[in-house]
Amino acid sequence: MKRSLNTMTIAATFALAMPALAAPTMAAGLLDQVKARGSVSCGSNGQLPGFGLPDAQGNWTGFDVDYCRAIAAAIFNDPTKVKFVALTAKDRFTALQSGDVDVLIRNTTWSSSRDSQLGLNAAGTNYYDGQGFIVRQSIKVNSALELNDASICVQQGTTTELNLADYFRANKMKLKSVAFAQLDEALKAYDSGRCDAFTADASALYSVRIKFSKPEEHVVLPEIISKEPLSSFVRHGDDQWFDVVKWVLFGMLNAEEYNVNKANLDEQMKSENPDIKRLLGTEGSYGEQLGLTKDWVYRIVKHVGNYGEVFERNLGPSSPLKVTRGLNALWTKGGIQIAPPVR
């Protein structure tokens, strides 16, 4: 199992070395290539309920997955024209760098080194997250600061692993971490008692709790030990594609802000509000300027929904995860999600 993943890293490395595959951005812009190919190739998490997970029929669902679908909807007017590639934390950047995927939307933290030395651009934060801990209720721990000397299971190859070491170091606590390459293996080890705590982004903790044999016996500790703005990523050097990926998210956020949703979409097309007219393309040519069509936001909302609808469907109270909006509420509603205007 792990063998194949290592092979993938190596294969992707060699792909980077091959002349034909190595220059995917040179001939035409990536947007034109995607249009010609007829589908977007999207690097996704294949193991995280609520964010990215294929079901038994191979249908991908999740918050990150819907972002990919929104890109496809904006370009092709068809949210199914996405090729999902399941990537591990270890393989994700190599896959994007080598041109294996067009965009990486896989609960990936935006940090300075990833933005610069990896040759990538973060294209907008679709989820503001932070790292937390989950423990068994029976060990009677109320704060992460009590975890001195505790064994902690963690998924390797993530900022999580580094934050964990930083936090214990900063608080002068002794750390015994056990790192696993796969999320599932780390969880299994925690669930079977190998570790006292499991650490990951808070969103992931809610998401994995429903996988445990007895979810009600586990509690998420109150400390959030890091900031994790989870973002989409594209390669350096193709600004048009960068803009498209960025603005699909902004389109969804603006749609929520102006109360444009699946139910009232056709009604809103007749709106006289200039903001809504510009957003939905009944005035101006803002979509064309991005290399898309006039009705790009209309397409996104019609097929996928606005940001709030996507959140609600995958993560919110009506989903098994029951995550509250928190920081991810719109700026008008006490959160920090804000999109620049369409004009």
């Binding site: 890293t9 992707a12 490395t13 980077l16 070395a17 934390a89 270890k90 950047f93 190599t94 760098q97 080194s113 990833r114 030395q117 990896l118 390797q156 190859g157 993530t158 692993e161 580094l162 790192a179 390459a181």
Partner: peptide
């Protein structure tokens, strides 16, 4: 595993 992802220098 970890060094590769924390530095990103796959090759």
């Amino acid at each position: 595993g970890t060094v590769l992802t924390s530095t990103g220098q796959a090759i």
